[in-house]
């Protein structure tokens, strides 16, 4: 199953990106998590026909991508991967809402198309911001940050372990799939029955492994709380990052900057 394997190799690329050392990577995970949450919350809070006021929000991912030395093409590709979901959420809007909202010369654009564009834009912004968060912080940083922010310890531990063993589990699954295909002589697809056995087997193996891991943890003094080697420090830089971006987001929420600039230009010309 080369497809599964290669898509997981891709995750490790995200990991490699997260282990860089830049100004943004050095920020406290909590600052980045909260900023991203505020960003997503504000982007989602706009009324459904809003498009222009959303445009300035692209500033946040773009600035972070530039400062954190991330490959924009790669991230864009990842956003596209999730795009079909948003596409199908929004694609019926033009059919349901056909009242013309904007006139561009002879062409009238219906409210449905405007809200569709708005949905796609919001989708791009929020998913992009989340990806930037992962690529600058790493899943483990996010887990640690969430815990310090007050998320239950077990939740953070789950997230960290899920990420760590994703690779082991896919390896195991890939080996099973390969072993099956080597003995099924070109029969395409997997019969439901065999598939059931394989899933069941994988579950049993996973439970065995979980038990061994737990033993290994107990052997090294695990008491139920995952401790971090370096206590996170929330410095004035993190505070600045959080406060600066948040106030900018709020400003962009309250003032439609493109419209305002447009008015300014027409006034000056007039």
């Amino acid at each position: 199953m080369p497809k599964i394997e290669s898509s997981f190799l891709d995750i490790s690329r995200l990991d490699a990106l997260a282990s860089q050392r830049t100004l943004i990577h050095g920020l406290d995970p909590r600052a980045k998590i909260v900023t991203t949450l505020i960003f997503i919350f504000i982007v989602v809070s706009f009324p459904k026909h809003e498009v222009t006021a959303l445009v300035p929000f692209t500033l946040y991912p773009v600035v972070l991508i530039a400062l954190a030395n991330l490959p924009p093409g790669y991230l864009f590709q990842k956003v596209l991967l999730a795009a079909p979901f948003a596409f199908f959420v929004g694609i019926f809007n033009p059919l349901l809402d056909s009242e013309v909202l904007i006139h561009l010369g002879p062409v009238g654009i219906s409210g449905g198309w405007v809200s569709f564009a708005s949905i796609m834009l919001r989708f791009g912004l929020t998913v992009g911001a989340a990806l930037v968060l992962v690529a600058t912080t790493g899943m483990n940083g996010i887990g640690a940050g969430l815990e310090k922010l007050g998320a239950p310890n077990s939740f953070a531990v789950q997230l960290t372990f899920l990420y760590r063993y994703l690779f082991v589990l896919t390896d195991e699954a890939a080996r099973m799939v390969r072993a099956r295909s080597l003995r099924s002589f070109g029969i395409k697809g997997t019969e439901v029955k065999v598939f059931g056995y394989m899933i069941g087997h994988l579950l049993l193996r996973t439970m065995d492994r979980a038990q061994r891991i737990h033993q290994a943890m107990l052997c090294r003094g695990f008491t139920g709380e995952l401790r971090l080697p370096v206590p996170l420090k929330f410095s004035w830089r993190d505070m600045g990052f959080l406060a600066g971006w948040s106030s900018l987001f709020i400003l962009m929420r309250l003032v439609n900057i493109p419209q305002w600039m447009g008015l300014l230009v027409t006034e000056v010309l007039g």
Partner: peptide, 13 residues
Amino acid sequence: MVFQDPDDQLFMP
């Protein structure tokens, strides 16, 4: 205690 499968023992990020 060093376990047989290092993947069981190395569980941290």
